[in-house]
Amino acid sequence: MRPFNKYWAIFKIQLLNVMAYPSELLGRSFSIIIFMLVFASLWRTAYGIAGTDTLQGITLPGMLWYLMIAETIELSRPRVSTTISRQVKTGELAYVLNKPYNFLAYHFSTSFADSLFRMLTNALIGGIVVSLMFGSPPPAWGWPLAAIALIGAWALNFCMMALIGLAAFITEEISSFEWIFQKALFILGGMMIPLEFLPGWLRTVAERLPFAYAMYGPARLFIDPSLEGFYSLLAGQLVWLLVLGGALALAYNRGARYLAVNGG
């Protein structure tokens, strides 16, 4: 229990740090308004041209609620890769390694605190914008299911971002990996367009990748909640968490050894 208390304390301290500047945090969340306005204009036009209420089984309001959740996930993703790569590049890591905590667990706690408030404000502001334009959100009984799936999605994103950050052990410069990862989430994760719209073969591939569990799954569950869908999503998230978590632990151990060889 003691290790958990330690990381719980780290989480709480970081949360207090984040909440010390609420106006700054709120200011950052205004970007979601811009994105929702663009999505609303595009899809309203698209549904108008198609002359139909549903496209690929999704209604226009459903599409906007889907995109709101996807955008919330994107804007609240942990930015841990930048932090880790900075620590590797500046040598700050050498000072962090001898602290009495696990490096990855420490980043997990601080990143979650960073993201939590951002996730809530983005969902709130995005939700208000979509409500004003397209009416009430999907049934409330599905919200807790989507919230749990959002936490799973966040953890998956954390693993992938931390892996990118650890690439700094080898390449030092990681921004190009961050850009490509983000755009993979946009298309293969279904952030810009639900996976139903992809060509058949690409959809089959995308549905099996972790990007879909980190973005499409929770957003789709929010607009179309079902217990069956929830369990299936959770199972997929757990499998990918095991795979990516294992890869992360391996990459960290090898990276830390590599750093020691070079003298830190």
């Binding site: 698209a46 190009s176 850009w179 490509i180 755009k183 946009f186 298309i187 810009m192 367009i193």
Partner: peptide
């Protein structure tokens, strides 16, 4: 990396 980034970003439009 930036070329690949833009290419992936643009992939939305052929799908759309």
């Amino acid at each position: 990396g930036m070329v690949a980034n833009n290419l992936l970003y643009f992939a939305f439009w052929p799908v759309f």
